[in-house]
Simulated assay, not measured.
Amino acid sequence: MDFTFTEEQQMLQDTTRRFVSRDYTFETRRQRLAAAREGRADRKVWQGLADLGVLALNVPEEDGGLGGNAIDTMLVMTALGEGLVLEPFLSSAVLSTRALASMGSAAQKESMLPALAAGETVVVFAHDEAASRFDWKAIETSAREDDGSYVLNGRKSVIPYAPSADVLLVTARIQGPDQPGAMAVFAVPRNAAGMRIVPAPLVDGSVAGEIVLDEVSLPGQALLGETTDDAESRIADVLDAGIAAVCAEAVGALDKLLAATVEYARTRKQFGVPIGKFQALQHKMADMVLHIEQARSMSYLASVRCTDPDLALRRRDLSAAKVIVGQACRFVGQQAVQLHGGMGVTDELDVSHYFKRLMAIEMAFGSTDTHLEQLAASLS
Rank of each mutant, 00 (worst) to 15 (best):
Q9V: 02
Q9H: 07
Q9K: 10
M11F: 12
M11Q: 13
D14V: 07
T15N: 13
T16I: 04
F19Q: 00
V20I: 04
S21V: 08
D23R: 11
Q31A: 08
A41H: 09
A41Q: 10
K44W: 12
Q47P: 00
A50K: 00
D51C: 07
V54L: 03
N58K: 13
V59E: 05
P60C: 05
D63G: 03
L66E: 15
L80A: 14
F89L: 03
S91D: 13
A99P: 10
S105K: 02
K109I: 03
S111K: 11
S111N: 11
M112S: 13
M112E: 11
A115H: 13
E129H: 03
S132H: 09
D135A: 09
I139F: 01
T141W: 04
S142K: 15
R144E: 15
V151T: 14
G154V: 02
R155G: 00
K156T: 04
I159S: 03
P160H: 06
S164N: 11
P180L: 08
G181P: 05
P189L: 05
G194W: 08
M195G: 10
R196K: 06
I197F: 04
I197W: 08
P199E: 15
L202H: 08
L202G: 12
G205R: 06
V207N: 05
E210Q: 15
L213Q: 07
A222Q: 12
D230R: 15
D237W: 01
L239P: 06
L239Y: 09
L239G: 11
D240R: 13
V246E: 11
E249R: 14
V251K: 03
A260P: 08
E263R: 12
F271Q: 09
P274Q: 11
P274V: 01
K277H: 10
A280Y: 11
A280W: 05
H283P: 00
Q294F: 08
S297F: 03
T307C: 08
D317F: 15
L318R: 11
S319V: 10
A321F: 02
A321N: 05
C329I: 06
G333D: 14
G333F: 12
Q334I: 07
Q334W: 08
A336I: 11
H340N: 12
T346P: 03
E348Q: 11
S352V: 01
S352Y: 10
E362F: 04
E362I: 02
A364G: 04
G366M: 02
G366N: 05
L372P: 00
L372A: 13
L375W: 11
A377R: 14
